[in-house]
Computed example of a mutant assay.
Amino acid sequence: MRLIVVSGRSGSGKSTALNVLEDHGYYCIDNLPAGLLIDLAERTLASNDLLYPKIAVSIDARNLPGQLERFPELLQEVRSRNIRCDVVFLDADDETLLKRFSETRRKHPLTSEERSLAEAIADEGKVLGAISDLCDLKVDTTSLNLYQLKDLLKLRLLDEPEPGTAFLIESFGFKRGVPIDADVVFDVRCLPNPYWKPEIRSFSGLEQPVIDYLSAQPEVDEMFTDIFTYLSKWLPRFAASNRSYVTVAIGCTGGHHRSVYLAEKTANALKNTLRNVQVRHRDLHG
C-alpha cells in the first residue's frame, strides 16, 4: 500500500495534485480530517482484496487546529504499520497566492470579518507548520502554470521505476530565483557563458553546438568534476537517512546553457551508481 498526503497553503495547487494522482490510479480523498488518517490506513490494510492499494488524501487548513497539531504523531503511527506514506507540501510566495485568490474570487478558508486575505494567507503557513516541517517533498508552484505543475508532479511522484530515494537534478536561472524546494544548490555563473557567443546563443545546453563549446572549456570540466565528486559522496548519505526525495539545483544566469548542460551531464554520471535519478530543466522554455 502507498499513501500520499497532500498539503499546502490554499491556492498552491493541491487540487491539481489530487487530480494528477487520481488520473494515475489513486483513490483520492479531499479534506480528510487528520484524525481519521490512522483509521483509513487500518481499514485499507484490513481489506482482503486491497481494492485501493494507492491512496492520496488532502489535509489542509480546513482541519480543526487540534488535529493539525497531532499530525506528527499520526504520521509516525501510520508509518509504524509499514505503510509507505509520503507527505507532499505545495506552496507559493504570498504575492502569488494573493493574486490567485483575487483572480478566482474564491473565499480563503481562514478569512473572516476580522482577518483579511493577506493575513489569512500568512496565518495559514503557521497553521500548517507541523506538516510543512515533516514533508518529504516540498513543491514551489510560484512560477509554474497548470501544465508545468502537472508535469513536475508526475515526474516526482509517479516516475519511480525502482524503490528508494528519488534524486532530481534540476537546472534553473538565478534571474528567476533559486528553487525554494532545493536541498543542495550549485552556482555555475562563473563559467564561460555561451550567451556571449552569437553563433550559438540560440541553442540550449541540450544541443550539440553548446555541448561542444562547454565541453571544450577546462573550467567547465573542473566544475563538473567537483560537483560530481561531492554528490557521489553525499547523496548516498541522504538516501541512508530515509529521505524519499532529494533535489539538487544547478543554476546559471538564465537557465538555458551552462546549468542545463551540467545538470544533464551530472544526472547521466550519477545514474551509474544511484537509482531513481531524474532530471528537469525549470527555466529552459521559460
Rank of each mutant, 00 (worst) to 15 (best):
Arg105Phe: 05
Ile38Leu: 15
Thr96Cys: 05
Leu37Trp: 04
Arg106Asp: 10
Asn82Ser: 14
Leu18Glu: 09
Asp86Met: 03
Asn31Cys: 02
Asp30Cys: 05
His24Trp: 01
Glu95Phe: 00
Ala41Asn: 05
Ala34Phe: 04
Asn48Phe: 06
Arg79Gly: 05
Leu51Val: 08
Arg70Leu: 13
Val78Met: 15
Tyr27Asn: 03
Leu18Gly: 03
Glu69Gly: 03
Asn63Asp: 15
Leu50Gln: 11
His24Val: 02
Val20Tyr: 12
Leu32Phe: 10
Leu90Asn: 11
Glu77Val: 03
His24Leu: 01
Leu37Asn: 11
Ser102Lys: 14
Ser102Tyr: 11
Arg79Met: 09
Phe89Met: 02
Arg106Ile: 10
Ala46Phe: 08
Val88Ser: 00
Ser102Met: 11
Ile38Thr: 15
Arg100Asp: 08
Asp39Tyr: 09
Leu64Glu: 11
Asn82Tyr: 05
Arg100Ser: 06
Asn31Lys: 00
Leu68Cys: 00
Arg62His: 00
Pro53Lys: 02
Tyr52Pro: 01
Thr104Val: 08
Glu42Phe: 03
Thr104His: 05
Arg106Asn: 07
Thr44Ala: 09
Asn48Cys: 05
Gln67Asp: 14
Leu45Ser: 12
Ile38Trp: 12
Ala61Cys: 04
Pro72Phe: 12
Ile59Leu: 05
Ile29Glu: 04
Gly35Cys: 01
Ile38Gln: 13
Leu75Phe: 05
Ala46Thr: 08
Ser80Trp: 01
Gly66Asn: 13
Asn31Tyr: 02
Ala61Gly: 06
Ile55Lys: 04
Leu45Met: 06
Leu18Thr: 07
Lys99Tyr: 09
Phe71Ser: 04
Asn19Ser: 13
Gln76Val: 03
Thr16Asp: 13
Thr96Ile: 14
Ala34Asn: 09
Ser47Trp: 01
Gly35Arg: 10
Gly25Asn: 00
Tyr52Val: 04
Arg105Cys: 06
Ser102Phe: 11
Lys54Glu: 11
Asn82Leu: 09
Cys28Leu: 07
Leu68Gln: 01
Ser58Gln: 04
Asp91Ser: 06
Asp93Cys: 10
Lys99Glu: 15
Thr104Phe: 06
Asp49Cys: 10
Gln67His: 12
Leu98Val: 09
Asp91Val: 00
Thr44Leu: 03
Val88Asp: 00
Glu73Pro: 13
Arg81Ser: 09
Asp60Ala: 01
Val78Arg: 13
Ser58Thr: 04
Arg43Val: 08
Arg106Ala: 10
Ala46Glu: 15
Asp49Ser: 15
Gln76Arg: 07
Glu42Arg: 13
Glu22Leu: 01
Arg106Glu: 09
Leu32Pro: 10
Phe101Ser: 05
Arg106Thr: 06
Asp86His: 03
Leu68Ala: 01
Gly66Asp: 15
Asp86Val: 02
Arg105Val: 08
Gln76Ala: 13
Tyr26Ala: 03
Asn48Ile: 07
Glu95Ala: 07
Asp93Gly: 11
Leu98Arg: 13
Arg105Ile: 09
Val88Pro: 00
Arg100Asn: 07
His24Asn: 04
Asp49Val: 14
Ile59Gly: 03
Val57Lys: 03
Leu36Ala: 12
Leu18Gln: 02
Gly66Gln: 14
Ala61Met: 02
His24Cys: 02
Gly35Thr: 09
Asp23Ser: 13
Thr16Ile: 14
Leu74Glu: 08
Leu45Val: 03
